[in-house]
Computed example of a mutant assay.
Amino acid sequence: MALKIDPTQCTNCGTCESVCPTSSIAEKKGVYRIDAATCSECDGGDPECMDNCPVDGCISYA
């Protein structure tokens, strides 16, 4: 399973990208996306992107 970013809720702050330990989050044309192939969900711990995102519910499990 991987995580996903809801583009309708994302404010494009970039916080998720900067805290991702696997560099799985990238911005393209103003939209942040999570690469499911490299996202480890922080190896069973609390995902850093979810913990640090200022918008509740913006990042969720796919």
Rank of each mutant, 00 (worst) to 15 (best):
I25W: 08
E17S: 04
C53D: 07
L3W: 07
V55H: 02
C49M: 00
D51C: 03
E27W: 01
K4S: 14
K4E: 15
D46V: 14
E27F: 05
N52G: 07
S23L: 13
C39W: 04
S23Y: 09
T22W: 05
P21R: 02
E41H: 02
T15E: 13
P54K: 05
C53P: 00
D43C: 04
G44S: 04
A2H: 11
C49R: 04
S24G: 03
R33H: 13
P7K: 10
A36D: 15
S23E: 15
M50E: 10
C53Y: 08
C39R: 02
S23Q: 11
N12K: 08
N12R: 10
G44M: 02
E17C: 00
A26R: 09
G45S: 13
D6R: 00
T11L: 03
L3P: 00
K29T: 15
N12C: 15
G30E: 11
C39P: 11
M50I: 15
G44D: 09
C16K: 10
M50F: 00
C20F: 06
D51W: 01
R33V: 15
P7V: 12
C42E: 06
E41A: 10
A26I: 08
A26Q: 14
A26S: 14
C53G: 07
G30D: 07
S40I: 12
C53E: 08
P7W: 08
P47W: 14
C10K: 01
E41N: 11
G45E: 14
K28I: 15
C42H: 00
G14Q: 07
N52L: 10
S40L: 10
M1N: 09
